[in-house]
Design a protein around this nucleic acid. Structure first.
Lengths: 203, 203
DNA sequence: ACTATAAGATAGCGACAGTATCCAGACAAG
DNA sequence: CTTGTCTGGATACTGTCGCTATCTTATAGT
């Protein structure tokens, strides 16, 4: 496949593909002469991944690159790889925000480990909620955690049956790409509940 | 409060506060003379809200403004207001993506209404998931929907006991600000489950 | 009276994500 | 052949966003 064909297949302008190559996010095609290089299906898949992370997740390209690197060269363990993937995802917060989450995490019976990025992300999220006068306490936290734990358990289960390399890629991409699905479903559920209340208001 | 005091109280530079006023996101202080204006707690609260939406949610200022306008001037019904709020939140997608979500939504027994923004957002999210080779089918969708529905029901319930104006503000801000909490908890749950598997591996 | 600071308007800046231009080489048609 | 079109690759430019810095005029405090 030549670059113009790759562009056609992916819907991404040639100039942008060249840009991704320059930035090291997409490998160069195999040169077959001074004026032609060969691109394959892996290039196409990589482009689709870049698009998914960059458009749907709205990640800065630097973060997209981190995630791509992680898929290509995973850390020692699945746990460590996931930890790095989380750090490449928004919200991008100060490590100090981890402290804010301590109370909540311990009240939920979880382990407070400030080394894990999601802890500081939770802290920043709680700060935002409380700073605008919305409610956040142990009771509400428990209300949120239960369904989320159910969901997370269901998501992790299939990883056990995968080859380690597949599991890593699935975990990293799944963390990033199922999130918008979850948020959209929640918004839909809210709407549906409100619509039902109008149709058949509470007795 | 003068602008320099507001700056001190909020931690936001004076120049930035002036910028927010210029952009119409923050009302001007009440002029007490040609060289002084008076800012109150409402200005401080508004600034904190701008910060929460812009930093933690990483919303473009134009979208922050939409949400602020919605809190100030809600639409006719709670349902309609929420619909607009959803459109001000990422991911920002093409309305045409609504079609992609149709199959999923109908399989889940929900109403497919392309006029509601979350439908197209779900479509774009599904496209991203499938485009990168991750799984998405009715079975998986059901696995996701159940816990999310539980969560959403718990979130909507308290609105019934609120004054309508409070309910609107709470629904709009809650949709935007609890989302990072949910994502952080999911990431934490994943980590916790993986950590537990290492400590006490499956029999 | 004098200096420090305020409000408000205008202009400038740095990061980001591409686009556009340019060039030398290759292949294809006439 | 030669002429025109296209390619890969390098370099330079552009538009948008979210602030910052500067400037002007007018007080308010000492």
């Amino acid at each position: 496949m030549r670059i113009s064909e790759l562009s056609l297949a992916s819907g991404i302008p040639v100039a942008s593909i060249k840009f991704y190559i320059r930035e090291g996010m997409l490998p160069r095609g195999a040169s077959t002469s001074a004026t032609s290089a060969d691109y394959g299906d892996d290039h196409l898949a990589r482009l689709r991944l870049i698009q998914a992370l960059s458009e749907v997740r709205a990640l800065p390209l630097a973060r997209v690159k981190e995630i791509l690197d992680l898929v290509d060269h995973p850390a020692e363990t699945l746990y460590a790889t996931l930890g790095r993937a989380v750090n490449a995802l928004p919200p991008y917060v100060e490590p100090a925000d981890a402290d804010i989450a301590r109370e909540t995490i311990e009240a939920l019976g979880l382990t407070w480990d400030p080394g894990f990025g999601a802890v500081a992300q939770l802290g920043a999220a709680i700060r935002a909620v409380q700073g605008t006068g919305l409610r956040w306490d142990a009771e509400l936290a428990a209300l949120y955690l239960e369904p989320i734990r159910t969901l997370a358990t269901g998501e992790i289960a299939p990883l056990a049956d995968m080859a380690p390399a597949d599991a890593v890629a699935h975990a990293v991409l799944g963390t990033a790409l199922y999130e918008p699905v979850i948020l959209a479903l929640r918004r839909l559920a809210h709407q549906q509940i409100l619509a039902d209340q109008v149709t058949k208001p509470r007795a």
